[in-house]
Amino acid sequence: MRNSNILYLSRYTCYGSTPKNGRGTPKVPFPYIGPKLALRNKVVDTSSKQESKICFTELMELLSCLKEGDFNEKLCFEHQSKLKLCEEKYLATIEKEQEIRRKGTLTPGAKTLTSAQANILLKKYPQPGV
């Protein structure tokens, strides 16, 4: 890391020289020079948390069926279709969620907001003094 000039002066040196009598380094206060510390009127999109172990039981059933039938696929047709249905259902729900996320339609009385919804609200009512 490369310290800035101000930091370097304030922490390690005083009046242009380091103390040599064993005392702690003197701290000279300095004014903050940097960007304005305030939140923006925008929220970054973050992906929602996945549900835990989707279609896990179906997968396990299929694997055990395969082992029992000596990897004959025809015996496990039922399990296969079950797993397929489950996967399709899961993918459909994800698509629906993403569509809602993209559109950002506001629902009255909702406690949790998606990023698109929050952005719409922030655009309508921006923070004062930013």
Partner: peptide
């Protein structure tokens, strides 16, 4: 194809790593 299914069966203990 069956070899691939056998590999899946052998690694069934790691199935929860998917999520």
């Amino acid at each position: 194809k069956q070899d691939l299914h056998k590999l899946c069966e052998a690694n069934r203990a790691y199935a929860h790593f998917r999520w």
